[in-house]
Nucleic acid binder design. Structure first.
Lengths: 233, 233
DNA sequence: GAATCTATTGGGGGTTTCCCGTAATTTTGG
DNA sequence: CCAAAATTACGGGAAACCCCCAATAGATTC
């Protein structure tokens, strides 16, 4: 499969699970999981190849609060091999539980970040010898990195599109001006940039606020970013 | 963000230039370039394998303002093949100039995002037939993806200045007030809510802007949301 | 063809923010 | 423990923002 071609990636939620299974087959992994969240929009997506029972247990126990893989990925950009995680109290707790559900403590998590503060985590596990694991990882790490990026891109794009369907449509001019505002430009600056009067800029900002149901420009900028209409400047 | 700052931060780390050259050799590319920016810290890094003359021309002409590769990468997360860029006015302008400096219009740009709003772009070019290029890209895309992450991670963490500002730590009070600002409250409102003077609120907003390297409150709000410090209200 | 939406510009005026200070107490960190 | 940072507070003046109003032109829609 051509990894670059986004069209080959599944578009429907139900197919992500199947896709992860294919990843496992291709890269000789036992299990794979993807978790994506867009804090700005408040949406969360999760897909796993292991049964839903672990998913349920994970949520019920609130393991996401102490999960060291999440903790690590939060401020990391490079892939994190679970063997490098600190063997602390939280680690013991999460991975002891995981073990009961047939999930080994040998795995890797690849964090991906999008333009709107969205974070995606692609994890893969395999039960085997240490040497075997090391060898496997080094041979597939690049491919997994690419896959992580593309699956996250796919999920977030469809997420954004679906969200935008229920949100106001700002005119291109309004978006343009709001984008400049998010970039720290004053109304006068924007007017100069676009070669229009600063009063016109103010009108567009006002209608943007009205459409976004925002009281102030900062709120409008925040909402627009949350919806995915613009990006942080 | 303003890339004009490039001139004020003449970062010359020959290690990365050499590294890029090795990338070219290994992956049969003509040229490679890396550009990294941390808006919160206001730092910018640039490394290229082609001569400095293009770099100079690029800055002097302010091409970063219209460069379609930058524009695309800003809101993208997946690798962008230049062939998929819109052939607009800006494209013509930038790539006509680039051609004069021996840079082809056949290339790819891989964006990488860090935890604190930092963005890195790894670009590679090669002059060859279309089919040859496609084949080359699909065979090295995964490796380039990993390399992009690696370089960006390295650059962002190795730079001492950046390291200090890499993690803008807003005080709880600043976050609290910024969150209210994102919720559309005025300074007076926030002062009433927190039972403090609206002038104190203004002080916190100011220091928040400084820490986030934002010129205006809307920009600070957007940036904080982008980094994940606060949420849209 | 009329109505609607969008983009544009303008005036007037009140409100808000922002920048320049100073300065106290409390908290935090090396 | 001392230094640094955070938090609190005040004020004046300049700048920016925001809201009311009205008006013209183009594009789209009904």
């Amino acid at each position: 499969m051509d990894i670059v071609d986004l069209s080959t990636l599944p578009e429907q939620d139900s197919r992500y699970d199947e896709f992860l299974r294919q990843v496992c087959d291709k890269y000789e992994m036992d299990h794979a999981a993807y978790a994506g969240m867009n804090p700005a929009a408040g949406t969360i997506h999760g897909h796993v190849t292991y049964g839903d029972d672990w998913k349920v247990h994970y949520q019920e126990q609130g393991l996401h609060l102490i999960d060291p893989t999440l903790h690590m990925s939060q401020r990391s950009i490079a892939p994190v091999d679970w063997s490098r995680l600190e063997r602390g109290k939280d680690f013991q707790r999460v991975f002891r539980d995981a073990h009961d559900f047939g999930i080994p403590d040998q795995g890797i998590t690849i964090p991906v970040r999008g333009p709107y503060g969205d974070i995606g985590l692609l994890s893969a596990t395999r039960e085997c010898s240490r040497d075997e694991w090391k060898k496997l990882v080094s041979s597939v790490i690049s491919d997994l990195q690419s896959l992580a990026v593309h699956i996250h891109d796919n999920v977030m794009t469809s997420d954004t599109i679906s969200r935008m369907l229920y949100h106001p449509t700002l005119s291109s001019r309004e978006l343009e001006i709001l984008q400049w505002a998010a970039a720290g430009k004053s109304q006068q600056d924007i007017g100069d940039i676009l070669s229009i009067s600063h009063r016109t800029v103010e009108v567009h900002l006002r209608s943007s606020r009205e459409k976004l149901n925002a009281l102030t420009t900062p709120q409008a900028v925040g909402r627009a970013i949350g919806i995915g209409l613009i990006y942080p400047g």
